[in-house]
């Protein structure tokens, strides 16, 4: 299947969903980039551009939801969760309103625009808000699932979307469950917990590891919150080593979630692969993925190192 960015799948899903469900879509002057334009072109009476004013947009979304209409609010992850964090926390999170924050251009795969636009803190910020569901889909099929599921959830949801085209990992995600990790492949030596773009890379890394005699499990964490504590503890016990891989800071993201999940009941070695407490930088997405070791080669090397091989 052809590569497609999750933001593109988001726009298409919104446009399709608009046929059957009543909701509004907001954007902050990035509708062409976040792909909300796909919905806006089809349902102009339900699409509102808020201009370059993300804080206002989030509180407007809250007011709409308080008046009974669910809302998808989109911008780049940096501005949605960074600039408008407190509006999300107080106007949306605290009253548990039906606002779905779907943010594109998350992580370092923003590419050439550089560190100012590469949000590597959004998972950390969003999962810190009580009651927030956090989705980080791996491909188009999983994005479609997350967007539909977000509308079914009564309360705030964050959906993390990427800019660059990714490989299609799944064909159908209708059996995904919110808050349950998806075991893509089982293994006994090491468990790789991946999310977003690292899921495809982890699957490839698993094959490379198998050639070296290492049995690796691959778990797709499409829902970072609520986190699948049970599954993390299962693999902590089964493998003794968990490697987390994410296009996010190693502080506060998936790696942290796994550590929190296992530390109290099944302490084990957790190796966190991600951006190491530093900012991103300008380069093409592909170069950056490789630079930060988030590709199959990087995951493989990290796994072997973790196992002392």
């Amino acid at each position: 299947m052809e590569k497609q960015a999750t933001r593109v799948a988001y726009g298409k899903t919104l446009a399709a969903l608009g046929e059957e469900k009543m909701f509004f879509v907001l954007d902050a002057d990035l509708s062409g980039s976040t792909n909300t334009k796909t919905f806006g072109d089809k349902f102009p009476e339900r699409f509102f551009n808020c201009g370059i004013a993300e804080g206002n947009m989030m509180s407007v979304a809250a007011g709409m939801a308080a008046a009974g209409v669910p809302v998808f609010a989109s911008s780049f992850a940096m501005f949605a969760t960074g600039r408008a964090f407190e509006q999300i926390r107080n106007s949306i999170g605290y009253p548990r309103l039906n606002v779905k924050i779907a943010a594109s251009h998350a992580g370092i795969t923003v590419g050439e625009d550089g560190a100012s636009h590469q949000c590597i803190e959004d998972i950390s910020l969003m999962r810190g808000i009580p009651g927030m569901t956090v989705f980080c889909p791996a491909d188009s099929a999983e994005t479609q699932w997350a967007v539909k599921k977000a509308l079914e959830i009564d309360g705030p949801v964050y959906i993390r979307l990427g800019r660059y085209a990714v490989e299609q990992v799944f064909t159908d995600c209708s059996n995904n469950e919110v808050g349950k990790g998806n075991v893509v492949a089982d293994g006994t030596d090491i468990a790789i917990f991946a999310t977003g773009i690292t899921v495809a890379a982890a699957i490839k890394a698993r094959e490379a590891l198998a050639e070296k005699g290492v049995s690796a499990a691959v778990v797709d964490i499409h829902t970072i919150k609520p986190f699948d504590t049970e599954l993390a503890n299962y693999y902590a016990s089964r493998c003794g080593v968990i490697l987390t891989a994410e296009e996010h800071s190693v502080i506060g993201g998936l790696g942290s979630a796994v550590c929190e999940a296992v530390c109290e009941t099944t302490p084990c070695k957790v190796i966190r692969l991600g951006v190491n407490d530093e900012f991103g930088t300008s380069a093409s997405a592909g170069v950056l993925v490789s630079h930060f070791g988030l590709d199959a080669e990087g995951i493989t090397a990290k796994a072997l190192k973790a196992l002392g091989k």
């Binding site: 804080g55 989030m58 809250a62 007011g63 106007s91």
Partner: peptide, 28 residues
């Protein structure tokens, strides 16, 4: 807190956000 007090239409307290929420309601 709109979730706990009957009659409160919007949770507020962080200044500047209420008028935006009011805009969202009026738009709706």
């Amino acid at each position: 807190d709109m979730k706990t007090t009957p009659g409160v239409d919007m949770s507020t307290g962080s200044l500047g956000q209420g008028i935006s929420a009011a805009c969202g309601m009026a738009m709706t």
